[in-house]
């Protein structure tokens, strides 16, 4: 399965947009965990302005946008 990962905001400072190849089933939360962000960044996935639940299964060819909850401003 091939997933397009697109970092947004401060997550972009930690990784470039990339394609991730995964064997078998994978949930959104597992994908994020495998990318090893510092816990403090509190990274979640969104799509079309909607938050994706961490147990949601990824589909082949999906684009996952990653956003950090970390800063107030």
């Amino acid at each position: 399965m091939r997933i397009f990962v697109e970092p947004i905001g401060i997550v972009r400072g930690r990784m470039c947009p990339q394609v991730v190849d995964i064997d078998g089933d994978c949930a959104v939360g597992e994908l994020i965990e495998s990318l090893n962000f510092p816990a403090k960044l509190n990274v979640i996935a969104v799509t079309d302005g909607r938050r994706v639940a961490s147990n949601e299964k990824l589909q082949d060819g999906a684009t996952v946008k990653l956003v950090s909850l970390a800063l107030g401003g």
Binding site: I8, G9, I10, V11, V46, G49, R51, K65, V67, S68, L69, A70, L71, G72, G73
Partner: peptide, 12 residues
């Protein structure tokens, strides 16, 4: 302080 404004937009 606007470092994550873009992320904030995606969170609503």
């Amino acid at each position: 302080t606007a470092a994550n404004l873009e992320g904030g937009v995606h969170l609503g």
